[in-house]
Amino acid sequence: MARNKKNADGRYRYRVYIGKDANGAKRFKSFYGSTEREAKAAAAEYRAALGKGLDPEQSKATLGKLYDDLIAVKKAKGIGQKSLDRYADNRDNWGELKDMPAGELKAADFQKALNRLADWHDGKPPLSHFTLTNLRSSAKAAYDLAIPEIVLYNPITKVACPAGAPAEPREPITEEQQQWIRETPHRAQRAAMLLLYSGLRRGEATALTWADVDLDDATITVSKGYNFGGKKTKTTKTPAGTRVVSIPKVLVEYLKTQQDGCLYVLHNPKGERMTEQGWKQLWKSYMCDLNVKYGYDGKQNKNRPGGLPMVIDTFTPHQLRHTFCTLMYFAGVDVLTARDQMGHKDISVTLGIYTALDKKFKKKKINRLDAYLKKQSVG
């Protein structure tokens, strides 16, 4: 470590030898400070990091490169393509920061970027708090992976996540779509009926065995889920996820017709547990068949050249879970019971759904009262 004279701008500089370049010339990295002690401390910290494995050749690696390294590790661990795409989206959401050297970015840079994304900018709406939190978490993971080979420390730990826009509520499917599920035979019908009338998460439904289903008592015992990335059974998402779900008669009667001797309630044509890709293919086929039947009155071929345009409102498996909670609201099920049925860790999640429904449907009830009073006054 070599000391240099005080610079013309008043700062002190210390240099650290980091090896030779391709031509054999010595290479140094400079550190600055307003005092000798400050510059020397910064240089000492860097030198210590070299001893722990910091690679000077990668010291200019960009934030985007850190994300690419993280994505490579996640892919090697077998996480799904949807999650990999989310990491890529997070990388791109940082805008110009992704092309800057990660080791030179400070907490203030990330804070400024998050604050900007939490508000209207360049004609784009603000991101939700959930998305912003996910963005911050992914950057933290990217930096953690890069220490100490590429960066010295993680600036994200000092960054606060702004509120952002309220998360958009997941809309339940309509009564007409519920009827489609009940009346349309398809290999996915069993999955759709199960999710719609039990509120199970997709991973919970994938791990469900017939031994967990008591049709006499009209209950389903949820004690495990399935990790699609790791391809293994896991404990439920939260301790609250372990529960006994009471199911309605419509599901009981349907499941009585579905017992097929397989271990799993939901399975592929070979009787094996559903995979991530299996779910995607199954659901795509399901939406295509519903589109033919209810969008084209069964008069078109879904396999026609170029594909058949989707004219119905499609829905996702998770929407069916949300719809189950909505059905409990309309049935007058109290929020505590609904929380237990859904397996929500925090009752505020259930309350959020119930409160949103209150705001939406109580207004309609008041409108009916207005119409009734107006009719009375006319009479």
Rank of each mutant, 00 (worst) to 15 (best):
D260E: 02
T219W: 00
V292N: 08
P169D: 14
E176F: 12
V265A: 02
Y197H: 07
A211T: 14
D260W: 06
G278E: 08
S285I: 06
D212C: 10
D260S: 02
C161K: 13
R187C: 05
C262K: 11
G298E: 12
G199S: 10
D297T: 05
K232S: 11
D217S: 15
I173Y: 03
P269I: 01
T184D: 09
E176P: 12
L215K: 05
E176S: 11
Q277C: 12
V213S: 09
P172L: 04
G164R: 08
K231S: 13
L255K: 01
S198Y: 02
Y254F: 12
P166D: 14
T236Q: 04
R201N: 06
D216W: 07
R182W: 03
K231L: 14
K224W: 07
C288S: 13
P166C: 14
P269D: 04
P162S: 11
T238F: 11
R170S: 11
P239L: 04
T157I: 15
A205Q: 01
S198F: 01
A163H: 14
G295D: 01
T236R: 01
R182P: 02
K249Y: 11
D289V: 11
R201V: 02
P185K: 12
Y197C: 01
W210I: 07
W279M: 12
R187N: 08
D289F: 09
V252Q: 02
V244A: 08
T206N: 11
G298D: 06
K256M: 01
E168C: 07
E176A: 14
K158E: 14
N301D: 14
D260P: 05
P185T: 07
V245N: 03
G203L: 10
V213C: 10
P239M: 08
P248I: 01
K237P: 05
P269Y: 00
T221H: 13
A163M: 15
Y296R: 05
L255W: 01
V159L: 11
D289T: 12
E272S: 04
E175H: 15
K299E: 12
E253P: 03
T238E: 02
S198H: 03
L263T: 13
K270T: 10
R182Q: 14
T184S: 10
A211H: 13
R273Q: 14
T209W: 04
Q178C: 13
E276L: 08
R243K: 09
G203I: 10
G295C: 05
T209P: 03
K224A: 12
W283P: 03
V244T: 15
V159P: 09
Y197Q: 02
G271L: 04
E176G: 05
I156H: 09
D216N: 14
Q179R: 14
K232N: 12
Y264F: 13
G295L: 08
R187S: 10
R273K: 09
Q281E: 10
T275Q: 08
G230H: 08
A160S: 15
K302S: 12
R187F: 10
T184A: 09
I156W: 08
I173N: 00
E171V: 09
L200R: 00
H186T: 01
L251I: 00
I156M: 15
A211M: 11
G295W: 04
E253W: 03
